[in-house]
C-alpha cells in the first residue's frame, strides 16, 4: 500500500471533523412524549367495563404559539410504534400491557397544540397481516386485506349489554376480501384531530369514552362496525368523530370531533 499524500490525510481528517460536527449540531430535535388518557367524563360509573380502547395514530405535528408545525418523528419501538405509525392502547389486557403515549423526536421547544390523524395511511392499511410489522401485526384489529385495519376499536359494556364501535375505511374495491385494493377506498374515514391551548408534551390528551358511551345509549343495534352510513345506530357516534358518513371525509377538518379533548371534564376535575 502506498501511503496517502499528507494533503489527502488532512482533507480526509477535516471532512471527518465536519461530519462529526454536523451530526452533533444538526439534529436540534428533542425527545418528546405525548400522553393519552381515558376520560369517563360525567358518565362516570354508568359506563360498565371498557373492554377495549385502541386506536392508530400517524402524521403527528406539534404546534407552537405562532401556529408553526413541527413534525413528530416517531421512534420505532416494537410492538407499539414504527417510524410511520403508533398504536395507542388505553385498556390493555387485564389492565396491563397498556401503551398510552406517542414517543419520538421533534424540533421546537414550546408547544401549545398538536395535530394528528387517527387511522392507518392507505399505503400501510391493506397489507398481509401475517407479514405485517408492528404495530400492524394485530389480528384483532385487522378486517381483511380489502378493508384493512380497525383504526379505532372501542368495546364497552353497561349493565345490560355489550357495545362496539370499530372505525375503518370502507368502500374499498378489490378482487376479494383477501386481495388489496389498488385505489384508495371511497370512504377513508381518517379522523383529523387538532387541539390547541395546551402543551401536549406536558398535559395528556383526553380520550372521551363518555362521548362514545352516550352514543351507545341512543343506538338501535348494539354495534357500529362498518355500515356507518346506513346503520341507524352509527349516526350519533360518527358525528362524534367529525367525519361525514356519506363520503368518509372530515367535515370542516373534523373540527366537530368530540372524542379527543384537552379540557378536563367536570366530573373528574372540579
Amino acid at each position: 500500500m502506498v501511503p496517502l499524500p499528507r494533503t489527502f490525510r488532512i482533507i480526509f481528517l477535516s471532512w471527518l471533523t465536519i461530519i462529526g460536527l454536523v451530526a452533533c449540531v444538526g439534529d436540534r430535535s428533542n425527545s418528546v412524549v405525548v400522553q393519552f388518557e381515558m376520560d369517563r367524563g360525567d358518565a362516570g360509573n354508568a359506563i360498565g367495563e371498557v373492554r377495549d380502547l385502541r386506536f392508530y395514530v400517524h402524521d403527528v405535528e406539534l404546534l407552537d404559539a405562532s401556529g408553526q408545525a413541527y413534525p413528530l418523528a416517531l421512534t420505532a419501538l416494537a410492538p407499539w410504534q414504527s417510524a410511520d405509525l403508533a398504536l395507542i392502547d388505553l385498556v390493555g389486557q387485564q389492565q396491563t400491557n397498556l401503551n398510552t403515549a406517542l414517543r419520538g423526536r421533534a424540533q421546537g421547544e414550546q408547544f401549545s397544540g398538536i395535530r394528528f390523524k387517527v387511522g392507518v395511511p392507505f399505503t400501510l392499511n391493506h397489507v398481509n397481516l401475517v407479514t405485517a410489522a408492528p404495530p400492524l401485526d394485530r389480528g384483532d384489529l385487522f378486517w381483511s386485506w380489502q378493508t384493512g385495519y380497525k383504526f379505532l376499536r372501542a368495546d364497552l359494556t353497561d349493565a345490560n349489554r355489550e357495545w362496539s364501535f370499530h372505525l375503518g375505511s370502507t368502500g374499498c374495491v378489490s378482487a376479494s376480501a383477501v386481495r388489496a385494493p389498488d385505489q384508495p377506498c371511497s370512504r377513508p374515514n381518517l379522523i383529523r384531530v387538532e387541539l390547541r391551548g395546551f402543551d401536549p408534551t406536558k398535559e395528556p390528551i383526553r380520550v372521551r369514552i363518555d362521548e362514545l358511551f352516550k352514543s351507545m345509549s341512543t343506538l338501535q343495534s348494539s354495534v357500529c362496525t362498518g355500515d356507518y352510513e346506513y346503520d341507524r345506530g352509527c349516526a350519533d357516534v360518527i358525528s362524534k368523530t367529525g367525519l361525514q358518513a356519506s363520503n368518509g371525509e372530515c367535515m370542516n377538518d373534523c373540527r366537530g370531533q368530540r372524542l379527543f379533548t384537552v379540557h378536563v371534564s367536570s366530573a373528574t376535575h372540579q
Binding site: Q93, V130, P134, R138, G139, D140, T147, G226
Partner: peptide, 29 residues
C-alpha cells in the same frame, strides 16, 4: 369477513382465532 356476518371479529387473524400468541406479537387480547 363481512360486517354483515361478523364471523371474523372472533375468528380473526391468520389462525382464525383471537387467542394467538407468537414470537413477534404482543400478548394477545
Amino acid at each position: 369477513m363481512s360486517e354483515r356476518l361478523e364471523c371474523s371479529h372472533c375468528h380473526s387473524g391468520f389462525n382464525f382465532s383471537q387467542f394467538v400468541t407468537h414470537e413477534s406479537n404482543a400478548p394477545a387480547e
